[in-house]
Design a protein around this nucleic acid. Structure first.
Length: 493
RNA sequence: GGUUCCUUGGCCGAGUGGCUAGGCAGCGGUCUGCAAAACCGUGUACGGCGGUUCGACUCCGCCAGGAACCUCCA
């Protein structure tokens, strides 16, 4: 199965069979968030996408080193207005907080949100501010190789010179001639030879708080350098997969390729993977557009665009129901559909525990399992994988209803399959307390009441029976009658 | 303006040159004291116009509408 994992490589614009550089091991780098405000739905999509990749590679038996950075140095917010001011320090002065305090606040929120979404922590989570020296070293090697120039205390990457030897634009499908005629002219660029040159080191203005000494000036590293420097440090000069949002393809990832190639003579990344955007009313959800919904708002329902709260697992399932390279449009209707669908899936997981194996199967477990993994192998096609999971749900329900039978061997296989795919790979988890898992006293009390209700039902005392059911319902206990008793679960709070 | 991409049924969302995607909602039925759940059955489809083909939702062209990137962005 390992040999058939296919991923779409942005570099070739084709699906390719994944072959790691070192057999059995995978080096994975994903661009992490810039921590200057709360995480929103778009971040969830990116990090759930690569969490799925991390989980699936691990499931396939690879030893994965997953590096996902925290950008806490800040890039240029607005060259026109800010004139070189760091984005994070700008916000810090507005809020009268230390820059690192701002970073910490939003980093904590990010971690909490990701934990709620059951996004696994990466193997290494390096911070740009902790790797200034590595970035300076990289600048020096780029300068030494002749692909950068110093200008007024800042250092810029010489794109034109790089393009004479290598191909600038190969990832995003651009060519320099187009960039020359189409790049917008911005103020304050007189230091650069060409408008498309980008900063490797930027001299700090007096107002700039975040700054580090260097041979060129007191300043800070350029926009794109941290990822090149940190991926090289932790994954080596060449590594397997680099991921990030589609909106980072240009210029960010293009510049990363140029930096790595200029400093070491060869490209670092073998497979580039990009997740598509979340849209709202057909338009990209983005902080800069102001049309975003934060994850905290989503989880609490506290936003004017939200008709209700959506649990982290509902959000995760919603995202997994679309392929990662398609846009996915936010709407209450779509989230509500996901909520219901997820509940149906997780109910079937519980039902699976109660099934009893027979001599022979009337269902084909192997086939559905095979199709599901085939979908995951095909560029992580989670929506197709989920569609097959729902076929298995139908199977489970039919067995429970007595319309189908399953052998003990198949039942064991089905249980393993569900545990593997639903929990380990898709990273879903039950959110409700159920009769089997919650607090013992509560469980005992509810069981006691429902047993009393059974007795009332047996003596056809419908008034008492309905009263118990209705009042427990009001308290948040959902009750289902079964052939020989009852089942219950707690509603979400 | 340049580059790239998208347009599927009430909603979301896959996919393929000829074979039911799936979820949610709807409708009919079974089960149930009622309810819930479950089960069975079921309709609506591939933006428009041409072309290639025995056959296109799937390939090509044009048109319409929309999006992303070209500036920080997941």
């Amino acid at each position: 199965m390992k040999d058939q994992f296919i991923i779409y490589n942005t570099l070739s614009r084709k699906k390719e069979v994944f072959k790691p550089l070192v057999p059995g091991k995978v080096g994975l780098y994903v661009c992490g968030p810039t921590v200057y405000s709360n995480s929103h739905l778009g971040h969830a999509r990116a990090y759930i996408t690569f969490d799925l990749l991390f989980r699936y590679l691990t499931f396939l038996g690879y030893k994965v080193r997953y590096v996902r950075n925290i950008t806490d140095v800040g890039h240029l917010e607005d060259e026109v207005e800010g004139a070189g001011e760091d984005r994070i320090s700008k916000k810090a002065r507005l809020e009268k907080l230390e820059p690192m305090e701002v970073v910490q606040i939003y980093m904590n929120t990010f971690h909490r949100n990701m934990d709620d979404l059951n996004v696994l922590r990466p193997s290494i989570e390096p911070r740009a501010s902790g790797h200034i020296i590595e970035q300076q070293e990289m600048i020096e090697s780029i300068v030494k190789n002749g692909f950068a120039y110093e200008s007024n205390g800042s250092v810029y990457f010489d794109v034109e010179k790089y393009n004479q030897k290598y191909n600038y634009g190969k990832l995003s499908g651009r060519n320099l001639e187009d960039l020359k005629t189409n790049t917008r002219l911005l103020d304050g660029q007189s230091e650069k030879k060409n408008s498309f040159d980008f900063a490797l080191w930027k001299k700090a203005t007096p107002a700039h708080i975040m700054r580090w000494p260097s041979k060129w000036s007191d300043g800070f590293p350029g926009w794109h350098l941290e990822c090149s420097a940190m991926s090289m440090k932790y994954l080596g000069e060449q590594f397997d997969i680099h991921g990030g949002g589609m909106d980072l393809t240009f210029p960010h990832h293009e510049c990363e390729i140029a930096q790595s190639t200029a400093s070491q003579g060869n490209e670092a990344v073998r497979y580039w993977m990009h997740n598509n955007m979340i849209t709202i009313n057909g338009q990209k959800m983005a902080r800069s557009l102001g049309n975003f919904i934060t994850l905290d708002e989503l989880f609490t329902g506290n936003h004017k665009a939200l008709k209700q709260a959506y649990s982290p697992m509902t959000v995760r399932f919603f995202i997994l129901q679309a392929h990662y390279r398609s846009t996915i449009d936010f709407s209450n209707e779509a989230l509500q559909a996901s909520e219901k669908g997820l509940e149906r899936l997780l109910t079937a997981v519980n039902t699976l525990d109660d099934l009893v194996g027979e001599e022979q199967s009337t269902v084909n477990v192997a086939e559905v399992k095979e199709k599901c993994f085939a979908a995951l192998n095909d560029d992580m096609n989670s929506p197709i994988a989920i569609a097959h999971l729902f076929e298995a749900v139908k199977m489970i329900n039919s067995i429970k209803a007595g319309n189908e039978k399953i052998s003990s061997d198949d039942l064991a296989e089905l249980r393993t399959f569900f545990a593997n795919v639903v929990f380990d790979v898709l990273g879903l988890k039950p959110e409700k307390a159920t009769g089997s898992g919650s607090n013992e006293i509560l469980k005992g009390a509810i069981d006691l009441l429902l047993n009393l209700r059974m007795e009332a039902k047996a003596s056809k005392d419908w008034g008492t029976a309905d009263k118990i059911r209705n009042e427990l319902n009001t308290l948040g206990v959902e009750i289902k009658d079964t052939k020989d008793g009852f089942e219950w679960s707690l509603k979400e709070l």
